[in-house]
Design a protein around this nucleic acid. Structure first.
Lengths: 193, 193
DNA sequence: TGACTGACGTCAGTTACAGACATCACTGTA
DNA sequence: TACAGTGATGTCTGTAACTGACGTCAGTCA
């Protein structure tokens, strides 16, 4: 018999989300989370740098999906078009089955500013890596930064709407709507004087 | 004679920035900051909810300037035009004299992820209040959100460039450049299929 | 004069982390 | 098959960010 059960991080994550959802984030200690799956506080902090991080583990997979989409764009595609492709390939990360889980997670995060900060940082990190990817395609600094940041903004708005109560459309559809709204607004905007 | 000197928060802020810049953020304790101006740790935490917050006090003034700009836009202006106005009125907050101070602050923040998270949150808060302002002008939810988030993205990029080493142009000029780049990219983008 | 307030100090407690070191099932190698 | 790693864990101990309760006292105002 194995000395330790595998998937420690995953078990901690599941336990943490459940405890956070029932008792609230602040009234749940790292020790409690660890003990609820038969581990020690110290072990918890070996798997997650932060108490907050337990809710955000695995985000790098989303980042990779996004970047893959951008990298896969034809070389003649504009930076913004590459970003649009990135958004489409991110959609695979938000299938309908995942929505209930995402909603519980959202509820927890919405209740705690510290968790919101962490989420914003993950989003911002997405922005910088996306910028780097665009630059690697030969896009100049300003264009890459603007396209990537815009893309992250669209992603953020789309994700927020996707997890909203009552929303049933697919992520891809919502993202297309948000992106379309951006193009429409920018298209009819007054030029810089 | 007054029992306490006025401007406690400002003195703590100045002391904190200096200590952070010399010793580094993490190796500076709240107690040290407080003692360096003859106060107690407890008093520090009465003025700032957080150790981080000492670097971000006063941000609400910037928010008010931004919102004032958006509110001042003519009623027939599009949401994005209102946002562009908000950006222009924010420029008053970044005169050339402020740049050296902003650069020191930036150095400190760049070194610490926790501080970056706080900065992102302030930016995000700007986004939500800007959204609310636009909605109060009668703009529908999607349009307001997209315009506001886009504006915040432009602001963020412009600010980052404004504090960059070697940069000497005024904030307003940089913001106009970034905003122009966005319009140019969106103008030539492929429409959503 | 005396109650009240506001900005501060003091003290004690909780908890998020982090370093150092021990443990021990498992693994690969001689 | 003996045996030296290795890696995930536990234990112990310490630091610093906060927080609540309460006391203090100069200035203010009825």
């Amino acid at each position: 018999m194995a000395r330790w059960q595998p998937g420690t991080a995953a078990r901690l994550q599941a336990a943490a989300l459940e405890l956070f959802a029932t008792r609230g984030y602040e009234r749940t200690t790292a020790t409690e989370i660890a003990q609820s799956v038969g581990l020690t506080e110290r072990t918890f902090f070996r798997h997650f740098t932060d108490k907050r991080e337990v809710l955000f583990h695995g985000q790098h997979l989303l980042a990779e999906a996004l970047l893959e989409g951008a990298r896969g764009a034809p070389s003649e595609a504009s930076p913004l078009d590459a970003v649009a492709r990135a958004l489409r390939s991110a959609a695979a990360f938000f299938p309908a089955e995942r929505r209930p889980h995402s909603r519980i997670r959202k509820t927890v995060i919405d209740e705690n500013p510290a968790l919101q900060e962490r989420e914003l940082r993950k989003l911002a990190d997405l922005g910088t890596t996306l910028t780097d990817t665009l630059r690697a395609r030969g896009v100049d600094d300003l264009a890459a930064t603007v396209a990537a940041q815009t893309g992250v903004a669209v992603f953020g708005v789309a994700f927020t709407r996707w997890v909203r109560d009552g929303e049933e459309r697919a992520f891809e559809e919502i993202a297309a709507e948000v992106y379309g709204e951006l193009l429409a607004q920018a298209g009819s905007a007054a030029p810089v004087r």
